[in-house]
């Protein structure tokens, strides 16, 4: 990684963090848990890293496969649970 590349990635980090700070505002208390659950599913983005690690190699490949299974559980389970929560929420409203 060149120094220019690193600084470019730092820009991305700073700007994305700022957007993250601004995104959450005046969330109604009923949405706290679903929002937490949804952002938990989003943090499963590490699944991308896991896919990149399942490549030619010995131990590194198996470590990548473990990561991929765990990340997939996080992503799939996370979105499914959030949807269930929000579904219940909608019924209550109606």
């Amino acid at each position: 990684m060149t120094i220019e590349n690193f600084i470019f990635l730092l820009y991305i980090l700073v700007l994305a963090s700022y957007v993250g700070f601004e995104l959450i505002s005046k969330v109604p208390p009923t949405l706290h848990t679903p929002l937490m659950s949804a952002s938990n599913a989003i943090s499963g983005i590490t699944i991308v890293g896991a896919i990149l690690c399942v490549r030619e190699g010995e131990a590194s490949k198996y470590l990548g496969m473990i990561a991929l299974v765990l990340a997939t559980i996080n992503v799939v389970g996370g979105y499914a649970v959030t949807d269930r929560m929000l579904q219940m929420f909608k019924k209550k409203k109606a």
Partner: peptide
């Protein structure tokens, strides 16, 4: 990751 990291702190 940064989106979740930052919004998670606010939440």
């Amino acid at each position: 990751g940064a989106l979740v990291g930052a919004s998670g702190i606010i939440l």
